[in-house]
Amino acid sequence: MKNSIANNPALLSRIVQSVDKQKGKWIGWIMIGVVLMYVSVLILAPLIALTVNAFERGLGAVIASFSQSYVLLSFWNTLWIGLIVVSIHAVFGTIVAWVFVRHRFPGRDLINGLVDMPFAVSPVVAGYMLLLLFGRNGLLAPLVEATGIRVAFAFPGMILATLFVTLPFMIRELIPVLEAFDTRQEKAAATLGANGWQTFWRVTFPALRWGMIYGITLTFARALGEFGAVLVIGGAAQGKMMTTTLFIYHALEERQYIGAYSAALALGLFSLVLVLGSDRLRRKGH
């Protein structure tokens, strides 16, 4: 028996394969289990807790909390800041990524590190840095005084703060895509008589499209959730300048729990739809 297996390489390899497959299957299942647990504990469980608490007093209470005028206003403010921030990063983030991949220049490494700084710096600190710049005693106070454009404790400051915290997303999404892009395609287009703009629009941009969409989505989702920086630079003012995260904070402090949880849920679901949407879009596109 022993001999017959040893002398039959085909059979041996089949047995080994099936054992490997069995083992692979087990490890696979364990890994999938770990992933499911990890995601459900860290993301699903809090989301469920939030949903349960928001609907504690029924759908009516949730709807009533959304019908207050300042809640809707806070959603508009958040949406607006997000759209402005995304528009600016879509343009300048692309330029930064482009220059980074295509050019070598002094200070490139330094700037490369600085781009990641918003990941490392607490948003509250970011808010204070802007105050040190645009506050009444800030470095740029004379400029603020001369132009009459208020930055600190006004929307421009909140937009700047959100721009700061969302800076890396677009750039970090685009750099790998640009690096993977074969520049010979551009050269071929140029050889065929395309001008610079046509080359960009017809050849380079389509290759970047999915990276851009994902970068925009992440930027937007992050902008929606920003809290610490806008709290500091916005001065915790209630009313016209409130964003949704600020509303949630104030509502919690006033013990209006249903309002806070409902708004948090709406904001979370909106971000989730955005991210899932762009992910599916990307897969369909490829």
Partner: peptide, 14 residues
Amino acid sequence: YQGSGAQSRAVLEG
């Protein structure tokens, strides 16, 4: 509404 010290510094900063 925020912590008294933080509030005072916000007013100081504009």
